[in-house]
């Protein structure tokens, strides 16, 4: 269970999140959509403690995350732009994170072969293409089997084949009852992977509820048209 109470974030004079209130029950798969700069990534980064809120509280499973760090053990995060230490090889990176968390999971080699990355294990991160880095990010997010999975535009750099495989994997995780948070501009992806939708504009939540209800409300058959219609409404 993730609860966000009156969350506010300002970067200097610019307000990115305004008085945000949000409850996401455990096991719910939620898509976050909204125009560029609407605060999706800032929301996610606040959950992770990467961004420090100006005001408000965030609770995960009833505990405030302020000043805490061990709760991140239960969160897998795949960032929008995957940036990793350039000198490390893929294998070193994975074993380093494992050593740091004191984990002996074998899931990483499983995931490496799932994404066809076995032959890249000894390559340095700087030698990898953007898509391959994204895959490494996906492995890092899922290898410790966390209860909460956060994906920030995960398939933006992936080729169609990898994208399908990635979505399959997320689907499996979701079936296992994981809480999934996903931002994307690809509406079909949101439709495929999540059941609930959060629509954000200028740091405020305009809609949060089941996806089919939104489509019913907007009288549209497809999510894309429903969201586009809502964007036009908010712009007007």
């Amino acid at each position: 269970m993730i609860s966000i109470n009156n969350l506010q974030k300002k970067f200097g004079a610019r307000t990115v999140l305004q008085d945000m209130n949000l409850q996401i029950p455990a096991g719910q798969a939620t898509g976050i959509v909204g125009p560029n700069g609407s605060g999706k990534t800032t929301t996610i980064k606040s959950l992770l403690g990467l961004v420090k809120p100006t005001a408000g509280e965030i609770y995960i499973d009833g505990k405030s995350i302020e000043g805490e760090w061990d709760y991140r053990r239960n969160i897998g995060y795949m960032p929008q732009v995957a940036r990793y230490p350039e000198n490390m090889t893929v294998g070193e990176l994975l074993s380093f994170i494992k050593a740091m968390r004191g984990s002996r999971t074998e899931r990483d080699s499983e995931l490496l072969s799932y994404f066809n990355l076995e032959s890249e294990v000894d390559k340095r991160m700087r030698a990898l293409s953007g898509g391959m880095r994204q895959k490494v990010g996906a492995i890092l997010a899922m290898m410790f089997d966390p209860q909460i999975l956060i994906f920030d535009e995960p398939t933006a750099g992936l080729d169609p084949k990898s994208s399908v495989r990635f979505k399959q994997l997320v689907h499996e995780e979701k079936e296992q009852g994981k809480t999934v948070l996903l931002t994307s501009h690809i509406m079909s992806e949101i439709e495929e992977l999540t059941d609930y939708l959060i629509f954000m504009v200028e740091g405020r939540i305009r809609y949060h509820g089941p996806m089919h209800e939104l489509m019913k409300r907007q009288q549209e058959q497809r999510l894309e048209s429903a969201v586009a219609k809502m964007m036009e409404e908010t712009a007007a």
Partner: peptide
């Protein structure tokens, strides 16, 4: 230079 390294680790269970 360590910015990537820092960002990677901050998403992990480690205190600042």
């Amino acid at each position: 230079q360590s910015r990537e390294f820092t960002e990677l680790l901050l998403a992990q269970p480690i205190d600042r």
